[in-house]
């Protein structure tokens, strides 16, 4: 697994791409400082991963935004069974972004459990197109 931004050319089909191409996962911006894209309510400031027109908390209007790259692990695990076409190990964690929502991310190192309260930084996407995080102090 590498944690690079999505290439704009020379793209290869995702291994587990659904037939219609709908991808519900959060989008991650390209560049050396990637960020998760979402929306924020202009009334109550609630952040949402989905591209919603109305805030699910207060019903207020939203605007597109990007969220902080840094966050804190709510919890994490390493899954050691295949999931569809994905092969183990798979490091998964809920990350509370510093100014944003809780996002499901993949650990850059698939063998490493991201522990509750660890500080992490978004480093891009996995080869499969998932948000990828590295723990502070972990080589990137």
């Amino acid at each position: 697994m590498t944690a690079t931004t999505s290439p704009t050319t020379d793209e290869k089909p995702r291994r587990d791409a659904p037939p219609e191409g709908y991808d519900p996962r959060p989008r991650v911006t390209d560049g050396i400082e990637p960020a998760v894209v979402g929306t924020r309510c202009t009334a109550c400031a609630h952040p949402t991963l989905e591209d919603v027109e109305r805030c699910p908390v207060c019903g207020g209007p939203t605007r597109p935004t990007t969220f902080a790259r840094t966050g804190t692990v709510f919890s994490g695990t390493v899954l050691r069974i295949p999931v569809g076409d994905r092969q183990p190990p798979i490091s998964l964690a809920y990350i509370d972004l510093d100014d944003g929502p809780r996002v499901l991310g993949h650990g850059q190192d698939p063998e490493r459990v991201l522990r509750p309260h660890e500080r992490v930084t978004l480093v891009g996407e996995t080869d499969e197109g998932d948000p990828a995080f590295a723990a502070d102090g972990e080589s990137r």
């Binding site: 587990d16 659904p18 991808d23 519900p24 996962r25 959060p26 991963l49 989905e50 899954l79 069974i81 999931v83 569809g84 994905r86 798979i90 998964l92 499901l104 993949h106 499969e128 998932d130 948000p131």
Partner: peptide
């Protein structure tokens, strides 16, 4: 969005 990311 999480199922697509391998969340079993």
């Amino acid at each position: 969005r999480e199922g697509r990311s391998g969340m079993a």
